[in-house]
Simulated scan of single mutants.
Amino acid sequence: MTPSAQKPEPEGQVADAVRNNWVDRLAPEFARPYLRLSRADRPIGTWLLLLPCWWGLALAAAVDGWRPGDLWIAAGCALGAWLMRGAGCTWNDITDREFDAAVARTRSRPIPSGQVTVRGALIWMVAQMALAGLILLTFAPVAILLGVSSLGIVAVYPFAKRFTWWPQAVLGLAFNWGIVVAWSAHTGGWPGLPAWLLYAAGIAWTLFYDTIYAHQDKEDDVLIGVRSTARLFGVRTGRWLARFLVAAVCLMGLAVLLALAPEASALKLVVALAAAWALGWHLYWQITRLDIDDADTCLMLFRKNRDAGLLVALFLATAGFL
């Protein structure tokens, strides 16, 4: 097909959106700017928010078995992740609208491109948070308290890159909070040490994948004064990623051992520990293919972390049935 014969891009499409995504193809035209604001055309963020929830639920179930109510917890986490990721991205775009207008990859987002007003974005954010709150209210009281307590971190995150070189760590605190929420939704009590160790493993994982993601914008970030671990690490990124890999694997393995040993069968323990092994293998695979100066490769590897997280969820969930 010649360039002149190629199908034109949908009007208003965001530069880093998945091509031929459902928002641009199927959503009503009036809704597209708001769905783009929620990153519904870029689903990887929802996966990265959801998967830690499933990790926490699955490890809790591996301790005392799956329960009938866990199906709703898993589904509620999925719906809540979609809504809260959308609300968080909306808040992020409101606070970052001037930065986004100055960066090539983000200036096509709905607010800087003029598709959505700031007032409209605020209304949309509140609507998403309200719906997510209704889902959260179906969980155990402790889980509700934990869920509400995460809002402070979510509110601070967009500003982190203005005052710290480690905004990826703040993102990790927010994106992996679902581990302790889902754990408490299953158990009905406060999360124990294994849940917090798994949370720490998730933070290390977030530092890994979001450092890769941040390398896409490092040149623009220098010009506008935005900080990131990508800028902080520079050519030493590979060594830092290896450290995050080791931290994630060790913390996850320790979480499994403390949760299951010595009561669990050898088979259950091996299957659950395979979650940490699978994560480590996938992250190592990413390091071997990383080119920090190739934005397309960075985006591809960042998106591959959905598969890494799913492997962890699969092994932990299987352990719950043994």
Rank of each mutant, 00 (worst) to 15 (best):
A274F: 12
M129S: 13
L136N: 01
L171W: 05
T2E: 05
G253H: 12
M300W: 14
I111L: 15
A247D: 12
V271Y: 02
G69V: 02
A155S: 05
F315A: 13
N92V: 05
V116I: 10
L207Y: 10
L57A: 02
G45I: 08
V181A: 02
L137S: 14
T2F: 06
L57N: 01
R107G: 09
A130W: 06
T297V: 14
V249Y: 11
W66A: 06
L223P: 03
F233R: 00
S228A: 07
R19P: 04
E263H: 05
V154D: 12
T318M: 15
R19L: 08
R236W: 03
A31H: 02
M300A: 12
A155N: 08
W177S: 09
L173T: 03
R227G: 01
I212W: 06
G309W: 13
A81D: 11
A313I: 07
G88L: 15
A185S: 03
W55I: 06
P43A: 03
I203T: 05
V249A: 15
G133E: 14
S265E: 00
A182Y: 07
L71T: 15
A317I: 05
L122E: 12
C77I: 05
K218T: 11
M252Q: 15
R243W: 14
I203G: 08
D24V: 04
G238W: 06
E98N: 13
W54M: 04
S184G: 10
L49P: 04
I94K: 06
G152F: 04
R36D: 12
R231H: 01
K218Y: 11
V246L: 15
Q13L: 09
V116T: 08
L322N: 02
K7D: 03
R107C: 06
M125S: 14
G238T: 12
C250D: 13
W240R: 03
I94Q: 11
L171R: 05
P141Q: 07
P110A: 08
N92G: 12
V14S: 10
L35I: 08
A31E: 08
F302T: 08
R289V: 11
W66K: 10
D293S: 10
D294C: 04
V116S: 09
A130G: 14
W196F: 10
R239P: 00
D64K: 04
Y157M: 02
A319C: 01
